[in-house]
Design a protein around this nucleic acid. Structure first.
Lengths: 297, 297
DNA sequence: GCGTGGCATTAAGCCCCTCAA
DNA sequence: TTGAGGGGCTTAATGCCACGC
């Protein structure tokens, strides 16, 4: 996190580049999206802009190409792609959610395929001695989800299962096999996010434990989630404000506040907002959305 | 604009994809950045995320590659690139500003190279008859910047000049010649943004007029500028809030307000904010930044 | 485990050209 | 001027393998 902010400060990116960087950090580092997935998503967003220009410019391939500096041929392919997405529901290469599906779904599939009942052994079907098993069980963290331990082959099978399931949505020609680098990537991501943990044993395949019932439900992750949702929503509000849509409002205040009064000021602001909202709230009327963020400059 | 919102509604992108789309619309359609420039900027943002992971993961190429699903070789190239940017100030491929430099600077160069003094003819050095010239001058819009009209060759030379000047910052191997498609792109962008206008004449080269003293100073464009700046800043504030930085605050309120009271409510909110800011403002203390946006859901 | 090297495929960002409607 | 073809070069995303540490 600190690394990220340092990097941003040193590179001095402009506002758009900053937004891109925050997005990249969230998608790649926090969310665990593949590098290629992020590039694809950015390319798809650009395609939407091109498609939109094409429609506004009387469906003129050459002119659209000139306005955005790409080949008319390419514009045509892009327009076709978006058209198919709109008409036939073909999937565009977007991120689709905060985290990749195969990571989100992973704990559920494990819980389903390798369930564990209280009292039963967590480790089954290995060549370990009972003594070794109980030693491992003893060293397990507390409060584990009700799932058995699995070995590295079973882990691979789980990932393979999820991968093929996530590929089902794609048309046959676009499906990609689960390559070894991709498998390693997913495994490492699961470990990195502390969704699973590896237990190396002296001989034979390493074992894996499921640590959490869902991918990344830490409190920090929840805030990251809110950050992205809020920013998208804020972007949308400002977009309406740019077009002078009725009932939109934008404010930006900078004020110097003594350090020992900041908390007090923010608390009061919170109360003011609530009182204001209470005063005007009237169930069933059109819904007004208000977003606010404050912090030291 | 409407086209854009329609498209977003129909594709139902997730929050991250939404942010990318708003960015793409702003960069490509409003700002006039090249398609390739946007892709490069997104790739650069991803590179920063990868670099940051590499530093956090004890400079392990293989592990960084696995965490983000790219080849260690590629990680190495990326790390080197960012390192050079940090150490030697080498330029990364970023957007760099709301609009491309060559568009922003265009009016200034025109004004400098083809200045016009009140009373003098706007059109010089063509083979037009005095009568034709005065007819054209008569039809010109009012309130033009003090610049002479130029023909298409002179326009091309201006663009060439700007292009080569913008390439000076790049190291020799990376410089790209001004291709014809690129020239056409820049010309079309200038016309599209109503910075210049073409005047076709019956025989000979078409003429061009400079319409504005600067690229895109319309009020709408100013709001777009604020939108991007605000969003980047909001993103930063929330980023601090995610890490529970002291003195950060985030609020999100939804309330139902009767349509005929919305304006009143927003006005009151505005006053509340100002009063609150006045109350706590104390010159010379640390600066607190507060951002707020509101609108119908 | 790691870094490094080679080699292959495919897509796509760029450029240039021609011809018919 | 536009759409529809043709051709080209180059980068880079993604994969595989192999060597030496």
């Amino acid at each position: 996190m600190k690394e990220d902010r340092d990097l941003m400060q040193r590179l001095k990116p402009c506002a758009m580049d900053q937004i891109l960087m925050y997005l990249a950090f969230s998608a790649l580092k926090t969310g665990g999206h593949r590098h290629g997935a992020f590039l694809d998503a950015a390319a798809t967003a650009a395609k939407c802009a091109i498609y939109s220009t094409y429609m506004e410019e009387e469906q003129n391939l050459r002119r659209t190409g000139r306005l955005h500096h790409l080949e008319p041929k390419r514009v045509k392919v892009i327009v076709k792609e978006i058209d198919q997405a709109l008409a036939e529901g073909k999937l565009l290469k977007m991120l689709g959610s905060q985290e990749p599906e195969y990571l989100i779904q992973f704990p559920y599939v494990w819980l389903e395929q390798h369930p564990w009942q209280a009292g039963a052994p967590r480790i089954v079907g290995t060549h370990l001695t009972p003594r070794e098993k109980s030693e491992i069980e003893r060293d397990l963290p507390d409060e584990l989800p009700p799932a058995r331990l699995i070995n590295s082959i079973q882990l691979m099978e789980l990932i393979e299962f999820l991968h093929s399931r996530s590929q089902e949505a794609l048309p046959l020609p676009k499906r990609e096999p689960l390559s070894e680098p991709l498998l390693d990537h997913i495994r490492d991501r699961l470990i990195y996010s502390r969704t699973v943990e590896r237990i190396d044993i002296s001989r034979g395949l390493p074992l894996y434990v499921l640590l959490k019932t869902s991918y990344s439900p830490e409190s920090r992750e929840e805030r990251v989630f809110s950050m992205i949702e809020d920013t998208a929503s804020y972007f949308r509000l400002l977009n309406a404000w740019v077009d002078r849509a009725p009932h939109t409002f934008r404010a930006l205040e900078t004020l110097d506040v003594p350090a020992d009064q900041v908390e007090e000021a923010l608390n009061e602001l919170d109360k003011l907002l609530r009182a204001w909202a209470d005063k005007y709230h009237c169930e069933g009327s059109p819904t007004l959305l208000l977003q606010l963020a404050a912090g030291l400059k």
